[in-house]
Simulated scan of single mutants.
Amino acid sequence: MSASLERLIEIMARLRDPEKGCPWDREQTFETVVPYTIEEAYEVEDVIQQGDMPGLCEELGDLLFQVVFHARMAEEAGEFVFDDVVCAINDKMVRRHPHVFAEEKPGDWHQQRQAWEGHKSQERKQKAGYSGSGALHGVATALPALMRAEKLQKRAARTGFDWPDIAGASQKIDEELAECQSALQNGVKQEIEEEIGDLLFSCVNLARHADVDAESALRQANRKFSSRFSYMEGRLREQAKTIRQLSMEELDQLWEEAKLTGAGQRAT
Rank of each mutant, 00 (worst) to 15 (best):
G138E: 01
T141G: 06
G138R: 01
G107V: 15
F80N: 00
R113K: 08
C87Q: 15
F101R: 02
H137L: 07
F80H: 14
H99A: 03
V100G: 01
K125E: 14
A128Q: 06
H110D: 15
D83N: 07
V139A: 00
S121N: 11
D84K: 03
E117H: 08
S133P: 05
M93D: 04
V81P: 00
T141S: 07
A140V: 07
M93R: 11
R113Y: 06
D108A: 09
M93G: 03
A128G: 03
E79R: 06
C87E: 15
E104P: 00
P106K: 03
A115K: 05
Q126I: 14
Q122T: 01
V85Q: 08
F101L: 00
N90W: 11
H99W: 15
G107Y: 10
A115W: 00
H119I: 09
E103D: 15
V81I: 14
G107P: 11
S131F: 04
P98R: 01
A88Y: 08
V81C: 06
H137D: 15
K92V: 10
V94Y: 09
A88I: 10
D108L: 02
A115F: 01
F82H: 04
I89S: 05
R124G: 04
S131P: 02
L136K: 04
F101P: 02
V85L: 12
P106F: 07
G138D: 04
I89P: 01
W116D: 09
Q111V: 11
K92W: 13
D108G: 13
A88K: 08
G78S: 02
T141R: 04
D108F: 04
K92N: 08
F80P: 00
E123I: 10
F101G: 00
S133L: 08
A88H: 10
D91I: 05
P98F: 05
Q122S: 09
E123L: 09
A135V: 14
K105Q: 13
I89G: 00
P106W: 07
G134Y: 05
Q112S: 09
Y130W: 14
V81H: 02
F82T: 00
W116T: 08
H137G: 04
L136P: 05
E79W: 13
A128D: 09
D84P: 01
V86T: 07
V85I: 14
K127N: 06
V100C: 03
D108I: 12
Q112F: 00
S133E: 15
T141P: 01
K92P: 02
F80C: 11
H110W: 10
L136V: 10
D91R: 12
P98K: 04
F82W: 12
Y130Q: 10
A140R: 14
D83R: 07
A135G: 02
V86S: 05
H137E: 13
E103P: 04
Y130K: 06
K125M: 13
A135Y: 00
N90Q: 15
H97V: 03
K125H: 08
Q126V: 08
R95F: 13
V139L: 03
V86Y: 07
K125F: 03
Q112R: 14
D91A: 13
V139C: 05
V139H: 01
W109C: 03
Q112M: 08
H137Q: 10
